[in-house]
Computed example of a mutant assay.
Amino acid sequence: MHVWNGLDEVPEDFGPSVVTIGNFDGVHRGHAAVLRRIVDLAHGSDARAVAVTFDPHPLQVHQPGSAPELITGLADRTELLAGTGLDAVLVLEYTLDLARQTPEQFVVECLARGLRARTVVVGHDVRFGRDNSGTMETMVALGREHGFDVVPVDDVGQAPGADGPGADRWSSTLVRELLAAGRVDEAAAVLGRDHRVRGTVVHGDARGRELGFPTANLGDVVGMVPADGVYAGRLVRPGRLARGEADAVLPAAVSIGTNPTFDGDERRVEAYVLDRTDLDLYDEEVVLELVQRLRPTVRFDGIDPLVAQMHADVALARAVLGRAGNA
């Protein structure tokens, strides 16, 4: 799959294409179902399937104080989009200049000229162009003028336990709510996979090593960090995974929180790879996949009860991952 960071990277001879537009945060099951339809539509008509997305999220530009926390960073988003079978993703830098484009300017420059769209697939509630003035009706009218069809698409699916046909549809908002509550297993049901965060392993306080549980501390974490607590999960080493090397995916117990037993005030994400004390992960980029929350973060009255609980956490993480076929 091609990833283009701007219209200037799109080949001049690219097209024709079937295009959809969206933020696709999390690339949840609803996104994936729609994108697979686009791939089928494109490949059934000798065209290319393309998703147009934005970085940063538009609300981070227009309302930075109230913008949603992103479920996935751009690297994970494009990787997940590739998994749907798309031929290309066009990442547009979202700026105030882009936001000031009229609906027609956006359609002409991006869809008609840039991607040579034959078909544009969008939701009924699509909004685009200056002040979100472009609507579905606008897109249809511009399609007639500039040579592409417009196919409306409905939201796909709903969350487990939803009450009624429109309740709790698969959405990025729902995923954020579940992660904020630590319900990563329920979030996985909407995402279609375990939630992941990414970061580079940095030096910490080395307390875990002193207690017999050396941890990989993540710095510059990308992806929404769920509620504080201890989780069963996996530590993935993308470089090794791409090369097919050993120790690329490792079962882990993940701690998220401030280490209240030691009066910590900095929120951290750290992972103990089960039964391994020989790994040197410093300065390596890793991905943590979170399978299930085991317990909330609590303060212990001393080292001995903390260590006893850590042994219990590891045993429980091993059992949970074993049931999931990961330990």
Rank of each mutant, 00 (worst) to 15 (best):
L235K: 00
R169W: 03
E245D: 10
A33G: 09
V34C: 11
A117Y: 01
H124W: 15
D263T: 04
G65L: 01
D155V: 15
R169I: 09
A242L: 15
G212S: 05
N326C: 15
V320H: 09
L288H: 02
R48G: 11
V273C: 10
E210L: 13
R207W: 03
T119R: 15
F106M: 04
D205G: 03
R100G: 14
C110I: 09
D46S: 14
H43T: 06
T200S: 06
G182R: 02
D163L: 14
D97G: 14
P251S: 13
G147A: 05
N259Q: 12
F54E: 02
E104W: 00
A42W: 07
T297P: 03
F14R: 12
A88V: 04
L218P: 03
N259D: 14
T95Y: 01
V126D: 04
E266H: 11
H203V: 12
R318Y: 13
R243Q: 12
G22V: 10
L7K: 03
G65E: 07
A82L: 14
R193D: 11
L142G: 02
T84H: 13
A271Y: 08
E177C: 13
L218C: 03
T200L: 08
Q309N: 05
V107H: 02
V50R: 05
L80Q: 11
N217F: 07
A49I: 00
F106L: 04
S255E: 14
A189M: 11
D13A: 08
G26K: 09
N259A: 13
G85Y: 04
L288C: 07
G114L: 05
D275G: 14
V52Q: 09
M224Q: 12
P214F: 00
H31N: 06
D220A: 08
P11S: 06
V89A: 03
Y282G: 01
L174I: 11
E104V: 00
W170S: 15
G192A: 03
A188D: 04
V34E: 04
D125R: 09
A206Q: 14
G6V: 05
T215H: 01
V175T: 09
V190H: 01
L98S: 02
D87E: 03
E69N: 12
V153M: 15
E9K: 13
R243D: 12
D149S: 15
D278L: 10
V201H: 09
L86G: 03
A49G: 00
A252F: 10
H62N: 10
A49C: 00
A112R: 08
A308Q: 13
D185M: 06
L288D: 02
L274Q: 10
L294G: 01
V197L: 08
L70P: 05
M1H: 15
P238V: 00
V89Q: 05
V19A: 12
R36Y: 11
V108P: 05
M310Y: 12
L290A: 00
L294V: 10
L7Y: 02
